[in-house]
């Protein structure tokens, strides 16, 4: 690991200003950054510790009700605290489930909400500095396309990159139309969650719309979410593994008819994959197998598998059908 300056900050404005410099990274839980620094993938010369800030400003770690019925998750709240929060469990089951199905108890105690949605891909070519990777070194090529790609994405891929976005939480947040509060060098702004991440296209090194110095301060969960929601995750191990396919869904069914639907897929997209196609296929239809299968077909219509991951197309469809079946049961 290269040598770096460690800078704890206790002021958001200072953090943002310091973070705008080149070769600078924020650290909160550290579960992504330390991992990648030890691999040589991340090589910051300055690391800005936000934890002092978190201890000083309780709003950054709190889960709080907003007057209009939304729920605000402080960006520096730990995954475990949000996952176990009674309001989250009752009103946003898919968020709680996505968190509890992610990582391990220890990682959830360390990692923060803001850090979680910014975690980097698990693509083995990205994580190994001896390999070609356009995301890590633009223009160096993509080892995964010509190599082993069982775990890679089938949606949102490009000629340059097929790396899967690994976050479970982000899939739930994409389904919910959450909003992200960002503090940057030029003040605060709010970003719809589905616009936070970008697909790789020709620039896989660019993963979000965040700018240097931006600090995520909170994520708002909207009100009026269908009461029945779930996050279903399919993986090789029974626990402590990244998704091969996952589905975050929320359905409002009345009189047997689907009034509203939220659908997002994980483990298959280069970004948390919201599927308006699936939602359109569901709304107004009877909540039955036929509608669920139609939604699954719509969600995966654009899938582009590679040599080893063709199974993900079918697996993602079945995962989505199962999730829809469960929330409508």
């Amino acid at each position: 690991m290269i040598s770096f300056d460690y800078v704890p900050v206790d002021d958001l404005r200072a953090a943002s200003a310091a973070g705008a410099h080149a070769h600078t990274r924020f650290i909160a839980g550290g579960t992504t950054l330390v991992d990648l620094m030890r691999l040589g993938v991340e090589r910051p010369t300055t690391v800005i510790d936000l934890n002092v800030l978190a201890r000083k400003d309780a709003s950054l770690t709190a889960v709080s009700d907003l007057p209009d019925g939304r729920l605000r998750l402080g960006a520096l709240a730990h995954m475990s605290d949000v996952a176990w929060d009674r309001r989250v469990r009752d009103r946003y089951a898919l968020v709680s489930e996505a968190l509890l199905l992610a990582a391990s108890g220890q990682v959830r105690n360390m990692a923060t909400i803001g850090g979680n949605v910014l975690q980097r891909t698990r693509c083995p070519y990205f994580r190994d500095v001896t390999q070609a990777c356009n995301k890590r070194v633009p223009g160096s090529g993509c080892g995964a396309i010509a190599g082993r790609n069982r775990e890679q994405a089938i949606l949102g891929t490009s000629e340059q990159c097929i790396a899967t976005h690994p976050s479970d939480l982000a899939v739930a947040l994409a389904a919910l139309d959450a909003h992200v509060h960002v503090r940057g060098t030029s003040g605060e702004r709010v970003i719809p969650f589905t616009r936070l991440h970008v697909v790789p296209d020709a620039h896989p090194d660019r993963e979000t719309v965040l700018r240097p110095g931006d600090v995520i301060t909170a994520i708002d969960l909207p009100s009026g979410i269908p009461a029945r929601s779930t996050y279903l995750k399919v993986r090789d191990r029974a626990s402590f593994a990244f998704a091969l396919a996952s589905a975050a869904v929320a359905l409002d069914v009345s009189g047997g008819t689907i009034r509203a639907a939220r659908v997002a897929l994980g483990g298959v997209g280069t970004k948390p994959w919201r599927s308006p196609e699936a939602e359109r296929a569901l709304v107004g239809k009877a909540a039955n197998d036929a509608a669920f299968h139609a939604a699954a077909e719509a969600a995966l219509a654009e899938a582009r598998p590679h040599r080893d991951n063709a199974f993900k197309v079918e697996l993602a469809k079945r995962t989505l059908v199962r999730a829809l079946t469960e929330v409508s049961a």
């Binding site: 839980g29 991992d35 510790d49 220890q106 990682v107 105690n109 360390m110």
Partner: peptide, 24 residues
């Protein structure tokens, strides 16, 4: 952070000591 062998308690919470800097 993939095996848990380094687990310690930080302020009573189980934490992976390999994925965090001592200075923090």
């Amino acid at each position: 952070g993939q095996c848990g062998a380094c687990t310690v308690h930080v302020d009573g919470r189980r934490t992976l000591s390999c994925l965090t800097f001592a200075m923090m």
